[in-house]
Design a protein around this nucleic acid. Structure first.
Lengths: 292, 292
DNA sequence: TCCATTTGATACCTCCAGAGTATCAATTCG
DNA sequence: CGAATTGATACTCTGGAGGTATCAAATGGA
């Protein structure tokens, strides 16, 4: 017994006519009759009551017809789905992202993927940039939206957007009324920034900006979360340089000011080179058609 | 592609070793390797990443493994179940019964069948004897517990029990205190009995009983339901002859009295001769082992 | 009643898919 | 560097699936 036999059986059960069923199977009647007989012999069950004029299903045959239909449907679905999975049109995609980069981009990406490949189950995980690198390396994430990082040769990377840093200060701070702010203005400020081990890209951008301005930055506080940085600035405990994309809706106690010659950085989609998940390839394909 | 190929695939996916997988399939490695290659070619999907030392599943292969397992399980279940259905160990049995006959017997029968053939879905329908005959004829019932009826040659019948009629009267009725009651005592009574068209067996038994006693019965009321007959007797509107098995729990207003030389009748299990449902045969088999 | 038609079963033949054997090539490990 | 392991390839062979011809039984119309 295999699926071919089931197809023969279903054909006969639906036509109740050996000749027509054989034709539907693109074969002649005699071998078809033999196959039906072989099925009944193999199962040890009479599936049809038949004489030279009539063919009818037995009770067992009726049940078997239902079962065969669902088995065949499952069989064909399996063969179809494996191709979809291979094309990245079905399966699972674990996508990491970080607050430092994701503002506005992740929703677009999710929409894009779920429109183009609705059968890909998207698992989103918000993490810190340093965690994302680690999770990608361990293959616990398939891809991630994070900050560009030149020290990542094992990653396939595609630029999604460029962003720039912007100064945020408490509304009562003297710089709150400045038109534009240069690096020198930060010389005496208590800077708040995430540690280099957590967000190396931004931290080195800030360092380079200060160095170019000839000052040595004073990092007064080093929380890990962007959210915390903003709250501390709101408490008046220091100033910070944060991505421009995060400067909307800061609340009434915080003011953001543009920097003179601001440091820029990349927001990228990245995945381990040679990722085994075909949905990753699909995602990169889709991102090609995207402009931010 | 058919189930054999799926089995090969599963074997390799589980062992990740061509030689061992081939051995599990009782064949040598070279044709096994060719079959795996043929599967991948037919699907157009690479299922294994392999070199001469390692074999691992691709992402698509992992999904396909799950799908194949469920398809194969369904396939085997279908082949197994069709045999169970043919044996009457699985399927559906629509069993009719009538109040006039069923007291105590149907529960026993249900217990018996659901113990011996738990996968037979039993559909019980309580009907009047005349309806049961019709439903059996139309194959809308597979079998029934009803009153023996000699005019049923198209039915396969098996005696389950014999029962006898017994008189019921209102507690205030003069016959309520009689030790035993003969046919003559019914000469002047208002009899309550179901019409002959509904319960021919009992009605003809009553008629024969009266004729043998030399009286002409006076049927004052002819309700169709046993339940109604008993209620009408309870209202003092007449007396009735009902199956002994129904004489327990009549309430305080009704008294039952044995008849002298009471008419007897059969309680039978019956089914259309040549019923297509194997579960019917199974039921008759089981009933053989039963004694009431 | 008989013959034509329909329909499933049987006999016999052909051929290819799938299994076997022998062998190769690549990798690993002592 | 050679022995061992493992998957791939080349070639052969066989069983089973399909084809053709034909039969047998049932039906229906003349």
């Amino acid at each position: 017994m295999d699926t071919r036999h089931m197809r023969y059986f279903v054909a006969l059960a639906e036509t109740l006519h050996f000749g027509q069923a054989a034709a539907r199977m693109n074969m002649s009647q005699p071998p078809f009759s033999r196959q039906i007989a072989a099925i009944e012999k193999a199962l040890g069950v009479r599936l049809f009551e038949r004489n030279s004029r009539n063919v009818v299903l037995t009770t067992a045959g009726k049940h078997f017809l239902n079962d065969c239909r669902s088995v065949l449907a499952g069989f064909e679905a399996a063969c179809r789905d494996v191709q979809l999975v291979a094309n990245g049109a079905k399966g699972e995609l674990r996508l990491g992202f970080t607050m430092y980069a994701a503002q506005g981009i992740v929703p677009k990406l999710v929409r894009l993927l779920s429109d183009a490949a609705p059968d890909v189950r998207l698992v989103l995980e918000e993490r810190l940039p340093s965690d994302i690198d680690e999770l990608l390396l361990e293959a616990r994430l398939d891809a991630a939206v994070t900050l560009g990082n030149p020290t990542a040769p094992h990653l396939r990377t595609r630029l999604l957007a460029r962003d720039r840093l912007r100064l945020i200060v408490h509304a009562d701070h003297p710089l709150a009324s400045a038109e534009k702010v240069g690096a020198q203005a930060l010389a005496s400020e208590r800077l708040i920034a995430a540690p280099a081990s957590v967000v190396p890209t931004l931290r080195s951008a800030i360092g380079a900006y200060c160095a170019a301005g000839g000052i040595v930055p004073h990092f007064a506080l080093e929380p890990r979360l962007q959210h915390t940085i903003i709250r501390l600035v709101g408490e008046g405990l220091g100033v910070a340089l944060i991505p421009q994309s995060l400067c909307s809706d800061l609340g009434e106690t915080i003011v953001s000011r543009p920097l003179i010659d601001p440091p820029e950085f990349d927001v990228v989609l990245c995945a381990p080179t040679g990722s085994k998940n075909p949905a990753v390839g699909r995602l990169f394909e889709l991102v090609k058609q995207l402009s931010f």
